[in-house]
Amino acid sequence: MNAEFEKAVKESKELTKRPSNEELLKLYALFKQASEGDNTGERPGGFDFKAIAKHDAWNELKGMSSQEAEKNYIEFVQELQTKYA
């Protein structure tokens, strides 16, 4: 992970307002894609809707490079900082 990405991760936790659920899912998916690559896990079953949503959001980024995910994560955090400033 590069320093700019690590800084964005820290800043994402310091936003003055809580992002929407969709924004949080996007942050989660971009972070996971940047740090772990493609999602290889099984889709959760049952009634764990939060885990299913997180899995699906990450899975949508399949094939995106870690570098591209880092770049998109940094840009999205900057967007959120502007939106919630």
Rank of each mutant, 00 (worst) to 15 (best):
M1P: 07
M1K: 12
M1E: 09
A3V: 11
A3R: 14
K7H: 09
K10V: 08
K10N: 09
E11Q: 11
S12P: 05
K13S: 15
L15Y: 08
L15D: 01
T16Q: 11
T16Y: 11
T16M: 12
P19G: 11
P19W: 06
N21M: 11
N21R: 09
E23C: 09
L24Y: 00
L25T: 02
L25E: 05
K26V: 08
K26M: 03
L30P: 01
L30H: 03
F31Y: 15
F31C: 04
K32T: 05
Q33I: 00
Q33V: 00
Q33C: 01
Q33M: 11
S35Y: 15
S35F: 14
E36A: 12
E36N: 14
E36Y: 15
N39L: 12
N39F: 04
T40I: 04
G41C: 03
G41Q: 07
E42M: 09
P44K: 08
G45R: 14
G46N: 09
F47A: 06
D48S: 13
D48L: 10
F49Y: 15
K54I: 08
K54D: 00
K54L: 06
H55G: 11
D56R: 04
A57K: 01
W58S: 06
W58A: 06
E60G: 06
E60F: 05
L61F: 04
K62G: 10
K62Q: 12
G63A: 02
G63Y: 02
M64P: 00
M64R: 07
M64E: 06
S65K: 04
S65N: 04
E68H: 05
E68M: 08
E68K: 06
A69F: 00
E70T: 03
E70Y: 05
E70A: 06
K71T: 12
K71W: 01
I74Y: 01
I74G: 04
E75V: 04
V77T: 02
Q78T: 10
E79M: 13
E79R: 13
Y84L: 15
Y84P: 07
A85F: 12
